[in-house]
Amino acid sequence: MKVAIYTFLGLLLLLAESSLLSFIPVEIFKPDLGVPLVIYTTLFLGPQAGIIATLFIGFMQEGLSAAPHGSILFVKIAIFLIATFLKKKLYIDSKFSFAFVCSGFVVLESLLYITLSLLAKGETRNALNILFYTIPNAVFTGFIGIFIFSFIEYLNVRYLDRE
């Protein structure tokens, strides 16, 4: 139930980002709204919920992007696996530590993507472009992550049982 609600929230956020935020002329403001949801479901609801949310969000993001087939899903699944294995090492006690973790995973996502492009296709053309946006993306995702975390916690307290 929870994973369905969070995934639906992810769907709405991604659609809103693609359509509503397009009128903002600043190209640098493009947080990765999928990362906070993947991290939250994986760390707080467990791997089964995490894989469902990751698969859904990965496909959604690829559907709304011109990225090559499989690329976004690959990095999202890699993030899910890393988060699963680091579950006991990551200590999230507030929205700020959650935001910090989200930012870190966005940086990791960019690096993974560059490595994937380099190793699988030998592509270097987009690497500089991806690096250019890595830090702004991480900062904005962390910032938005604070609100996403607070909203999910509010949903948990107000409407859903906390686990």
């Binding site: 791997p47 698969l55 499989g70 899903l73 699944i77 899910f80 696996l81 699963t84």
Partner: peptide, 23 residues
């Protein structure tokens, strides 16, 4: 056990998406 299944599924998807990426 359930966690292991989720991880195995994730690895399979990872491989599939990689193969899709490499055309």
């Amino acid at each position: 056990m359930r966690n292991s299944i989720a991880i195995i599924v994730a690895i399979l998807i990872l491989i599939t998406s990689f193969l899709a990426f490499t055309n």
